[in-house]
Amino acid sequence: MNKTKKEFLPFQFTDLAALNKHFEEKAASGLILRSFGPTAVCRYEECEPAKLRYNAVICPVSKSASPSISEEARGFIEFCEESGWNFVDHRNEVYVFCTEDASVPDIETDSRELIASVDRAASRSRFISLVLIGMSFANLCTSVLRFFGESPDLRPFSIGMVSGQAVLLLSALVILIWNVIRDRKWTAAMYSALDRGEPIPDPDPNVLKRRRLTALAGIILIAALLLGLITFALISSEPDIRCFIVSIMIAGVVFALLAVKIKNVKVGKGKKALLYFLAFLAFIAIGLVLFGIFGSVFGVFEETEAGAALGRSAEIFHLL
């Protein structure tokens, strides 16, 4: 068994051209991609340097954020393998194939479809980031509201916490907007190249370097946001805040998973909006039920007025 090497991949996983180029460079340096799993960590096997072609594509029949390979996606893999491509691994809906054969055509030869599929996948990924930012914003609002009711002795500490959260949130928002603008510009440039009858240009190395940096900054910020929320929940002197944050975070994760599922449901816009609304109601209900449970366990409802008010609502939901 050859040695394996792991690498944290600082690309957005929808940056298909960048992924292809990166994996091809790795193969040329003797590192063959073996796994491109659900985390941002890639595993390579040390081999003889090889001239391999990689094609990362958005699987047309894959459900987004699905770690398993569906029966339909398996059919797609077999279809590609029959034409000379070897399946390596997948992360959500991004499937990576490789081949030594230079004569095999690319998996996606319809450039417009390729651009549209990347655009769709990037929108799905941004939606998840937006949910995370929304959760952090809700948490920030709670912190600001708590700040006004606190004793003056605790205020310096709270100002630090709230400012830190606000800076992180703002940075995450700026990165998200930056990515949206960059993706829109990229899509427009690609379509305009196609309209002029030119092929999709290869990513310029400097652009790749910048993309790596922004992707890395995005990952660090999201991790920092989550860490900030957890730390805040842990060190908060108020048990009701701790219980509230943990409840909202768990409910938020459930809401995000439901939202991803709803996005893939093949129904009309009206029904979809209703499903999103029901998911939002479920988010509130789950949050309150959990808050009720945690609150009962830690006995927070007797300690503060806000806790008592929230606790009463939570208990009603819990009873329902």
């Binding site: 594509v57 047309p60 279809f79 590609c80 055509p105 998996i107 996606e108 030869t109 319809d110």
Partner: peptide, 13 residues
């Protein structure tokens, strides 16, 4: 003209 398997798969569907 050459058609890739991904493009063909979507087209056939």
């Amino acid at each position: 003209l050459s058609i890739g398997p991904g493009t063909l798969y979507t087209m056939l569907a």
